[in-house]
Simulated scan of single mutants.
Amino acid sequence: MADGTEKRRTCVIAVDGSKYSTEAVTWFKNNVYKPGDRVLFVTAIDHRKHMQYGSVTMTPGNPDSITHAFAAEDKKANEILEKVKAVTDGSGMDCEYFKMSGEPGECIVQKAKDTEADLIVTGCRGLGTIRRTILGSVSDYIIHHSDAPVFVCRH
């Protein structure tokens, strides 16, 4: 800016605990991060995989099974964020960690909108075209729905 003050850059980093996600964090830390950046690590818990819509098998014999499944997903999300903290400890980065609930791509894009992010960084598993079409892709969703620039770190 003309008066010598610069806007603090906000970067959203999508994390899911995979090696691709960890590589994206490391790449960001080594190649993009600048002192003063606000770095937001976002992981999403998608509980829908534990439910079968229109089926009574949601609680197979044990009414607490869904509660236990949700708790396991929450524990996994906490472990993912702890893993990221271990990678970023001592880096001097101003980090914030977010655990969101919902479809991962939607959560990441929403956090970027809410924080007016300047950049989103995500990893990519490298699914083929057919598998990505059938299964979907978080990185594809982010690319097509984000207002901010998106950097996809390929393996």
Rank of each mutant, 00 (worst) to 15 (best):
109 V>C: 10
136 G>I: 12
122 T>C: 10
118 D>G: 11
140 D>L: 04
120 I>P: 05
101 S>E: 04
137 S>E: 09
95 C>E: 00
96 E>N: 04
118 D>K: 03
141 Y>D: 02
131 R>N: 14
123 G>R: 00
110 Q>P: 08
121 V>Y: 08
98 F>G: 01
101 S>W: 14
136 G>Y: 12
102 G>N: 11
133 T>P: 11
117 A>N: 14
133 T>A: 09
109 V>K: 15
118 D>E: 12
113 K>N: 02
141 Y>G: 06
143 I>L: 15
123 G>N: 03
120 I>V: 12
109 V>Q: 03
131 R>I: 00
130 I>S: 09
131 R>G: 14
112 A>N: 09
117 A>E: 13
136 G>D: 02
102 G>D: 02
120 I>F: 15
122 T>H: 13
143 I>S: 15
120 I>K: 03
133 T>K: 15
138 V>Y: 13
128 G>P: 14
106 E>K: 05
99 K>I: 00
117 A>H: 08
116 E>D: 06
129 T>N: 03
107 C>M: 04
109 V>S: 08
102 G>H: 01
114 D>C: 10
130 I>P: 07
128 G>A: 10
140 D>G: 09
115 T>K: 12
115 T>G: 11
140 D>P: 10
123 G>D: 14
129 T>W: 05
108 I>T: 08
103 E>Q: 03
108 I>L: 14
142 I>D: 04
141 Y>R: 07
136 G>Q: 04
103 E>D: 04
143 I>Q: 12
122 T>A: 06
133 T>C: 07
123 G>M: 00
96 E>W: 05
140 D>Y: 03
129 T>G: 12
112 A>G: 05
124 C>H: 01
108 I>K: 13
111 K>M: 09
123 G>H: 07
97 Y>I: 03
102 G>Y: 00
102 G>I: 00
132 R>E: 14
110 Q>K: 13
112 A>T: 03
102 G>Q: 01
98 F>C: 03
125 R>P: 10
109 V>N: 10
102 G>R: 01
125 R>Y: 10
121 V>D: 15
104 P>R: 00
110 Q>H: 15
139 S>P: 06
98 F>E: 08
101 S>I: 01
124 C>N: 13
110 Q>R: 15
122 T>V: 08
116 E>A: 09
127 L>G: 01
102 G>E: 02
102 G>V: 02
135 L>S: 01
108 I>R: 11
109 V>R: 12
113 K>R: 15
